[in-house]
């Protein structure tokens, strides 16, 4: 994320503190989808539970706007608020888990949330997908974004299942190189639900 965006966010935050709703709307629309997915993944809850939890965070974000003062990063603030809210949620469910609370915005870098912002991740993917040959891209999108099985893709595109497999492998191979810089940003819980 460029410094410039962070400055803009702090400006919008200032606007929000002055009671300007459009600034709140911006933060909501920009971060809500990512925050929901983040909460859902982190503590393995239903999508609805995750949504409720994130909405509560935003309600507080607006209500406490005069009391709160964020000087560094709105992004970190929102993600950490959701994270702590998730831990509260678990505590209420009375599970015997030892939880270490994250108390401020310093211990997680801003970058690790980058891939949790819909428009930013989309941009990353769009750029990388452009590097794929036409057919390869089509197969990959059907497979990963539309959730089609290889057999279904082969029927739809009238190609052999073997070709579908080849194309998916090729796509993964190219994308892996293209997105190399961003892959380390994924944390472990992103693909293994550690509280299953």
């Amino acid at each position: 994320m460029e410094m410039n965006n962070q400055t803009k966010e702090l400006f919008l935050y200032d606007e929000m503190k002055r009671g300007k709703e459009y600034a709140f709307d911006f933060f909501f629309k920009y971060y809500y989808p990512g925050l929901c997915v983040y909460a859902k993944k982190m503590i393995s809850i239903s999508e609805q539970e995750a949504k409720d939890l994130v909405q509560d965070v935003f309600v507080k974000f607006w209500k406490d706007r005069e009391k709160t003062d964020i000087r560094f990063s709105i992004r970190s603030y929102l993600f950490i608020s959701v994270k702590n809210k998730c831990f509260d949620f678990l505590r209420k469910k009375n599970r015997n888990i030892k939880i270490q609370e994250i108390s401020n915005e310093h211990d997680i870098s801003d970058e690790s949330f980058e891939t949790y912002v819909l428009s930013e991740l989309e941009l990353l993917f769009t750029k990388s997908l452009e590097k794929l040959p036409e057919r390869c891209r089509e197969v990959f999108e059907l497979s990963r974004f539309h959730g089609l099985k290889n057999r279904e893709i082969s029927e739809k595109l009238n190609i052999s299942e073997k070709t579908v497999e080849n194309q998916v492998t090729k796509a993964l191979h190219i994308l892996k190189e293209e997105l190399k810089d961003y892959l380390p940003l994924l944390a472990l819980f992103d693909f293994f639900h550690f509280l299953r």
């Binding site: 809500y32 929901c36 949504k51 991740l121 990963r144 993964l172 992103d190 693909f191």
Partner: peptide
């Protein structure tokens, strides 16, 4: 590769969430 798959999965899950409606 696992991470790449996770990324694409994440993109799909995020796209499904209707922020305008929930706002």
């Amino acid at each position: 590769v696992i991470k790449l798959l996770a990324f694409s999965d994440r993109l799909v899950s995020m796209k499904k969430i209707d922020a305008e409606k929930d706002l």
